[in-house]
Amino acid sequence: MTAQEWQIVWFTAWVAALSSLAILPVGLPAAWLLARRDWPGKSLVETLISLPLVLPPVATGLILLKLFGRRGAIGGFLHDRLDLDVVFTWRGVLLALSVMSLPLLVRSARVAFEEVDPRLEQIARTLGAGNLRVFCTITLPLASRGIVGGMILAFARALGEFGATIMVAGNIPGKTSTLSLAIYQNVQLGQDAHAFRLLGVSVALAFMAVWGSELLLRKARRKP
């Protein structure tokens, strides 16, 4: 494995990990709202969040490209006011990974929240706890296993992301080249040996992610 290949591996791993964290502030409140509240337009939000799961990844990538490009609604604002570029940078990779893996987190977290006995939250209120305290001390800890499972799923999805990433971030060596993009690239160039090495690393990473989540599930089952 060359230095460049290791760079690709580390880059992929840390952007995927970062995206799994970045989706928490959006994913957890969304999951909680979907689990505990009813409001007009709820099914619309449910559908929107599920879209990246169902749309072809390149389609999602195209939507993000249009929104976050320098002439896009959001990208334009970021470029003109904050001198921040998203498309063709590592931020674009982060964006693509986050959007594609968010639905997985929201689904798992929503189920986890729904399984928390609402009675426990109610009793916590009678003991004087406000909404935030109830969420942090009761709801979240009890839902934590499901949430972590969701994060691992999201991480695994982010590791393998291709379609949206290549649309939004391109495959700029050293800057936005992820494992999947690099494998594709190497096959294009006829450099099969490189491709297979990167493939090996991908398999190893995916293996560890799934194994980790299995371990977690087993721990959950053992606890009385």
């Binding site: 320098r70 498309v87 060596p173």
Partner: peptide
Amino acid sequence: PTENVRGALAAVEAGN
């Protein structure tokens, strides 16, 4: 780098 020459063209068109 883009996939093909038209991709480069599109990137310039989009202002990215």
